[in-house]
Nucleic acid binder design. Structure first.
Lengths: 340, 340
DNA sequence: TTGTAAGCGTTATCAT
DNA sequence: ATGATAACGCTTACAA
């Protein structure tokens, strides 16, 4: 307890009259320990407010108590919600959150990640879409011995390594809602190719039309890339059709806001001329006018669960965190029955 | 190089035919070193792709190579921009970013932070507003010996520990722009008490009115708390006045979006019945209809600079990062001259 | 059930 | 200018 002011394992050992190894066993909840000894050591520990030095543990264990959040390009609100969920799960534990952006598309991405993992010796990794959809990253983690959980819109891995939302069913439900309102000419602003979420959402859209015996016209599907601007141009293509769609499902809110812009630029009223549904329930959905009907997925809960899956291995009661999370349709003012 | 596969300082020392201390000197750029020796060691290092083990360094140096981002309640986009700026500065260095939310208002906040700092031995800390305005946190950092940089809307600390924006002048400029358009009855949706940014922005607003000899009426100032909902209710109070304001400056975009809602609910057209200016230039500003005129502050650059101020101490050329950053008015469609 | 000794991979001290 | 040796604070053999 000399230099830094912090008590060390030696202080505890001395005051408890045991060896430091015994203290170490108490810290690591070793099962083979006399109850008396354990209690005595624990008393000294709390008396000193002793906390094991993470740097020393990291060195000896060849493992840091850090959880990494690896993401690429995703929207701000999503990353923040994820961080919030993770931090909630990590609160009060010995774990800290390290943020690591990754450039998917970069040729050296995998090597960068490998160096990062080998150097920092993270305890575990949480992977956000779309890079969570990359199997070689998951494989790299296993290889290096780093726990990981992938977040995504479909079950890409076993339950221990995945938390997924049910995007397809959610979009199917949203589209069915439009159909139930009387819409028949429904456009889709799709997400970018190569994103699993884009694929799932599109499939949900098509399933709903199929089930209602509405033919799927290729011209009613316009590609976007999840950005506001791409929403504007995709909607432009749809709204120039004759006859126009009376409703548009947009694969995320950002693009839905773009759809609204495009509609306004053409002098269309929302929702009387055009109903719109988005996906994500980001703040913008509630802030645009009219407020946007959208699909909300419990992203913070998913992230929380992902973090718990990783840290649970240390807990006594390794709780079974859920792996599938259901989204819900948030009904606001951007949808009405089509004008007669 | 046995167990983990990674070469260690010992491998380097052996292959270079020097002691590990010498290798250590090379790593740490010790000045007293024979050039020949240095070169020889460096060759071995790059030959092996040797990278010093951060955990061991952390233990020996009693200092981690982690930069902490400490924030409280701020909006998602701001945090993301900050993270992006920091990560940009940290890219390619040995530093990683750790995110640490803090509950300002919690009685134990300061103690929590102290524990965190004492345990994790962070290299440095970046503090976001509003908790960056808390002097006792800065003091705690100095005390513990943790570098820190505060971000904020006014120069609260010396240049080494501060990056600031010029909110007051920026708002003054924005308000002058409204006045130049012919507005005289201008409302303010203010930020929460206790936020330095709220104070600065309000002062800028008042300065502009003063300079134009427009009397400042207390009733034309409505308090908000930076949220969308508070923008709605604050705007409600302003728009119920007789005569109504013809323009409103809102101290952030989120509340400005609320102002738009409130105006719409009253059947007012924007901008012909009401001009609006916001602050932050978050994505919502460009996504609402009409697009919002707003003040943009270079938050990512500020964060980048903050990170560089912290890491620069290790660099050869300790560059002088700027401490004051200027905001600019982004003119969009939410402002016109008042109707005759 | 507990303790001893030897790491983990680096830096600090104090020689030479 | 370089090196031997002892930290740094903890864990993992292996004994006892």
């Amino acid at each position: 307890m000399k230099k830094t002011g912090q008590p060390t394992i030696n202080d505890v050992a001395r005051l408890a009259g045991v060896s430091k190894k015994t203290v170490s066993r108490v810290i690591n909840r070793s099962p083979l320990l006399n109850d008396d000894t354990r209690r005595r050591v624990e008393d000294v520990i709390s008396g000193l407010s002793y906390i094991p030095n993470p740097q020393a543990r990291a060195l000896a264990l060849r493992r840091n108590f850090l959880i990494g959040l690896v993401h690429d390009n995703p929207n701000a609100q999503m990353v923040m919600n994820v961080q919030q969920g993770i931090l909630e799960a990590l609160h009060g534990t010995e774990f800290e959150l390290v943020v690591r952006p990754l450039d998917r598309g970069s040729a050296t991405m995998l090597e960068d990640l490998r160096h990062f993992l080998e150097r920092q010796r993270l305890f575990g990794l949480i992977l956000l879409p779309p890079i969570s959809e990359n199997d070689s990253i998951a494989q790299l983690c296993s290889e290096i011995g780093c726990r990981y959980v992938r977040m995504g819109s479909a079950q890409l891995d076993d339950d221990d390594h995945m938390v997924a939302s049910n995007d397809r069913e959610a979009v199917r439900g949203a589209t069915e809602y439009l159909i139930a309102q009387g819409h028949r000419r429904i456009g889709l602003v799709a997400g970018p190719h190569g994103f699993r979420s884009a694929r799932e959402r599109r499939l949900g859209f098509e399933e709903a039309l199929d089930a209602a015996n509405i033919p799927i016209s290729r011209s009613m599907i316009a590609d976007g890339n999840y950005t506001f601007e791409s929403g504007i141009s995709a909607a432009g293509r749809l709204l120039d059709l004759m006859p126009r769609p009376t409703a548009i499902f947009s694969c995320n809110d950002e693009m839905a806001a773009g759809v609204m812009h495009a509609a306004r630029q053409r002098g269309l009223d929302i929702p009387s001329d055009l109903s719109i549904i988005g996906f994500d329930d980001t703040p913008v959905a509630a802030h645009v006018w009219p407020p946007l009907t959208t699909v909300r997925w419990p992203i913070a809960s998913m992230a929380r669960s992902a973090a718990l899956k990783i840290t649970a291995s240390l807990e006594e009661n390794a709780v079974d965190e859920p792996s599938l999370f259901l989204s819900t349709l948030i009904r606001r003012a951007s949808v009405t029955p089509p004008a007669a």
